[in-house]
Design a protein around this nucleic acid. Structure first.
Lengths: 131, 131
DNA sequence: ATATTACAGGATATTTTTATCCTTTATTTA
DNA sequence: TAAATAAAGGATAAAAATATCCTGTAATAT
């Protein structure tokens, strides 16, 4: 997603191969993840010659939070630190409140971080997509 | 560890079976984790009749941080959010600084949380070790 | 001393996650 | 309209994490 967000206007589409290389991830595996993102409308795909993936309207507006949720589910935002099946205010684990603060921090960060935030560092050459 | 920390003076030792039941975890698997904690000197073990595990001097002083490190390694404290092999100030990923804040928050929380903190909530009946 | 209890640890199995392969389907361009 | 390109998706495989089994060894109590 970040790689696609760094593409210049006029060339905002890239194939699996190009994307996988850019992020140093196996091609077939990258393809599966791209499929998830297409199914959830964060990406659009185009088949055939000069096809590939590009960020959708919805995808471009989505915070990092949404992308993580689509790819990894939201256990990272809601799961219990100690692994309790039911862990809540009513039935908290031994670190429920302390861990909730961490999760809220994480969730907040991901809610307020946009692809554009991430892409601009890459574009400026100050942050990296691989190795 | 928390369960052992809740045991009263005079009965501070418990067997694998009792511990596994208390935290609703498979017995053999729990045994392996207890072994790790013994090897790292956070627990002491006693064989034979009336044997079992108890918290060592060192274990009782250890912050939650240390326990997590022994059981899960420290990738949770140092790993890159985007999975880059090398992610550092010199070669940061697109969320390096934002994620560092989260990790520091987590690390700080675990550094300052003691077993006693966790155990006292259990003892008071306000927090739980299972389900 | 011996029987019994309980942890230690190596070997093995299961499950989940990660990754690949291959056929099908859609699209483009010649 | 045919050939080529590229994503879609089901089936499969490999790797990693989680969990179990079983034999050995140490300690206790009778």
């Amino acid at each position: 997603m970040v790689f696609l967000a760094t593409l210049p206007e006029g060339k905002e589409r890239a194939g699996v191969k190009e994307i996988a290389f850019a992020v140093n991830s196996p091609e077939a595996f990258t393809g599966k993840i791209l499929q998830m993102l297409v199914r959830e409308n964060l990406l659009l795909s185009v088949k055939g010659p000069n096809g590939g993936f590009l960020i959708s309207e919805e995808g471009r507006k989505a915070p990092l939070y949404k992308i993580v949720q689509v790819v990894d589910g939201d256990s990272i935002f809601t799961g219990c630190a100690l692994g309790l099946q039911e862990c809540s205010e009513k039935h908290p684990c031994a670190v429920h409140y302390k861990f909730k603060a961490i999760r809220d921090h994480l969730t907040g960060m991901m809610m307020t971080t946009s692809l554009q935030d991430m892409a601009s560092g890459i574009q400026a050459g100050v942050s990296f997509l691989k190795t």
